[in-house]
């Protein structure tokens, strides 16, 4: 089995799905000749032509709005938003049009659309190239939101998103692009949207997380294992819909839950996961639910010490988990 980076897995999945389905088109800022600023789509225009891999103007509302129109009329657009931070001009089109069209048309119109966007910090991107935006969209019924943590999941979730009949936001952590590598099967496969993944079984506490934080949590779990603390890790993979069953199972199994995300604390997915556990598994808990998340400041700051202060790290996860284990 080939070992690929997270970024390569995304590119090869786009290539494989595009070969399989002529309806798929890619467009966005710099995705064609350059192959994207992160080079995720490198080589795709050469293989599929300028008709299917298109450099668009800098106009996010138009990129997503036209993708909606094309999706309703028989194409399978996979537009890229260059940085997740740039998605907000398209917020209206995503939230009020894409998410709503099936509902208001009784299922007669669908919007098979995948919006790819790199997100997240720790790469010195500062205020407008580092944000986590998933909670804005996870709030919206009619949208699906997935965030892979490994190259294997990057492929399976992207294929599932492309084959889905409804709009899916596919967020890629830019710090994971080249730093995370793993085995990826050659053949086509999907990972069903809404299915979490038990990354590591454990006895003393559960870390529930997603995206880049999964690898950070794994590192923390290895450290804690040496201290005799057994950590279970649940990778949500989809943050809308959430895998409620697996969330409750892990909470009940260990009785202690640490929820980790890089997105800001308040209104983040951790609040929703926490509420689900409180509603359905409160009496199985041995400690209050703990959340570790980005601080409630308006954006990721620039200077390295400030950025580090914002970012959730393995060390911060280790410390929080240690504290929870002792409760």
């Amino acid at each position: 089995m080939a070992v690929m980076s997270y970024l390569e897995a995304i590119r090869e999945t786009l290539r494989q799905e595009m070969r399989h389905d002529q309806r798929i088109i890619i467009y966005g800022e710099d995705v064609g000749v350059r192959g994207g600023v992160f080079r995720v789509t490198e080589g795709l225009q050469k293989e599929f032509g300028e008709d299917r891999v298109i450099d668009s103007p800098l106009a996010e509302a138009a990129i997503i709005g036209t993708a909606i129109g094309a999706a309703v009329n028989g194409l399978r657009p996979v537009p890229e938003i260059q940085f997740a931070d740039f998605i907000f001009p398209a917020f209206n089109q995503i939230v009020q049009e894409a998410a709503r069209i099936r509902y208001r048309s009784n299922g007669e119109f669908g919007v098979p659309l995948v919006i790819r966007a790199p997100f997240g910090g720790g790469v010195h991107g500062a205020l407008y190239h580092s944000q986590s935006v998933e909670a804005f969209f996870a709030h919206v019924p009619g949208l699906k939101v997935v965030i892979p943590s490994t190259p294997y999941d990057a492929k399976g979730l992207l294929a599932a998103a492309i084959q889905d009949e409804d709009p899916v936001l596919y967020f890629e952590h830019k710090a994971a692009y080249r730093s995370i590598k793993g085995e990826v099967p050659e053949e086509r496969y999907i990972i069903p949207i809404g299915k979490a993944d038990l990354k590591r079984p454990g006895k003393d506490l559960s870390i529930i997380t997603y995206g880049l934080m999964v690898s950070y949590a794994q590192k923390a779990a290895e450290t804690l294992e040496k201290e005799g603390i057994s950590v279970e890790i649940l990778d949500l993979r989809s943050i809308r819909p959430l895998d409620v069953e697996m969330i409750l199972e892990t909470a009940k199994r260990t009785g202690k839950v640490l929820i980790v995300h890089e997105d800001n604390l308040t209104g983040g997915i951790g609040g929703e996961v926490s509420a689900l556990i409180a509603e359905h598994a409160l009496f199985d808990l041995d400690a209050p639910i703990m959340r570790l998340a980005g601080p409630d400041v308006p954006a990721m700051p620039y200077s390295p010490p400030l950025e580090h202060a914002f970012m959730v790290t393995s060390d911060k996860i280790t410390e929080a988990a240690r504290k929870l284990a002792k409760f």
Binding site: I68, G69, A70, P77, E97, S105, F109
Partner: peptide, 27 residues
């Protein structure tokens, strides 16, 4: 909306322009 005659509308002013361009692109 009516898929039979390819008609739809939106309550948001200006929201219908990009989807129309997208439909035209698909054609």
């Amino acid at each position: 909306f009516d898929p039979a005659v390819h008609f739809s509308c939106s309550g948001i002013v200006g929201a219908g322009f990009p989807p129309a361009v997208g439909a035209a692109f698909a054609f």
